[in-house]
Design a protein around this nucleic acid. Structure first.
Ligand code: FES
Ligand code: FES
Lengths: 144, 144
DNA sequence: GAATATTCAGATATTTTAGTCTTAATATAG
DNA sequence: CTATATTAAGACTAAAATATCTGAATATTC
């Protein structure tokens, strides 16, 4: 199972990228998000509330309300989202589950994993979410 | 949480590598394994039984009994163990959680993830567990 | 054959993650 | 001011992963 990120985190990544396509100050309802991205309504609600508390998103109640980015898209990377939801333990954990992961006392695949892990980090920080969102070729993100 | 492999799978990798250090036909008790590797006794028992059913290990009851490799260490890679415990869905799943992961309709990080994923595969198959076990610099594996 | 050390098997318990439901708060539109 | 659409919050349920317990089977040693 697994695959690096929790389900929550996957949903968060998908949703924030969707919001990144919208113009600043435009609010998007949970309804629109869940409809487009096929995420359970109340589950997504909780995730977005969480991200709002942490400052990555902003929210507004009432009609015309919804969620939007809490700061300029330029300043947000996928890494920020992962950090907020799952945390970044994976950046310094042994892929075989040993308690320590350092050059001292490395496991059999430490070297290779350390490289791959850096690659994952690069993948998450190399572009901001505005650029990322434009690179999405998923139909869910067309004409958002 | 997470980190690619489940806890079960991590334990399996650790335990099988430990067995790979032993001479062929030598049986190792769960007790020794859990003591050395700090894994819950009954949990490891179930994992090893599972691997035995799948042919990767062999077992023997009674005093002097225990577990050993079910085939030559040369023929086993870490990938076999992952395959047996977690399965290999991660090899063709989207890291952002989208339902499809192909070149058609790729997500924003598909290219990079596909490369990293291949790297993980290479990491798991590049050496057999005999070579892997020798590369372990963990104290748990010294003078096994 | 009896005592013992071990795996085997399956039931049960605990914890974590995922998902649902309900009510309150709030902003807008009329 | 009232009706309505929305988020906020927290309780609740469900499912999956992790861990423990107990008794049986089996091989060894004496
Ligand atoms: S010690 Fe295993 S990945 Fe670093
Ligand atoms: S589509 Fe996302 S990793 Fe392939």
């Amino acid at each position: 199972m697994s695959l690096i990120f929790s389900r929550q985190c996957e949903y968060a990544l998908q949703a924030v990228l969707y919001l990144a396509l919208k113009s600043h100050n435009e609010m998007t309802s949970i309804k629109e998000l869940t409809k487009r991205l096929d995420i359970p309504y109340h589950f997504l609600a909780k995730i977005l509330q969480d991200l709002t508390r942490k400052g990555l998103l902003s929210s507004l109640k009432g009609p015309t309300g919804g969620f939007g980015l809490g700061m300029p898209a330029k300043d947000i990377t996928l890494f920020h989202i992962v950090e907020a939801i799952d945390g970044v333990d994976f950046m310094h954990s042994c892929v075989m589950g040993f308690p320590e992961c350092t050059g001292k006392n490395p496991c059999a695949v430490h070297e290779k994993w350390a490289n791959l892990r850096d690659g994952v980090y690069t993948m998450l920080v190399s572009k901001n979410i505005a650029e990322m969102a434009k690179n999405m070729r998923k139909p869910e993100y067309q004409s958002a």
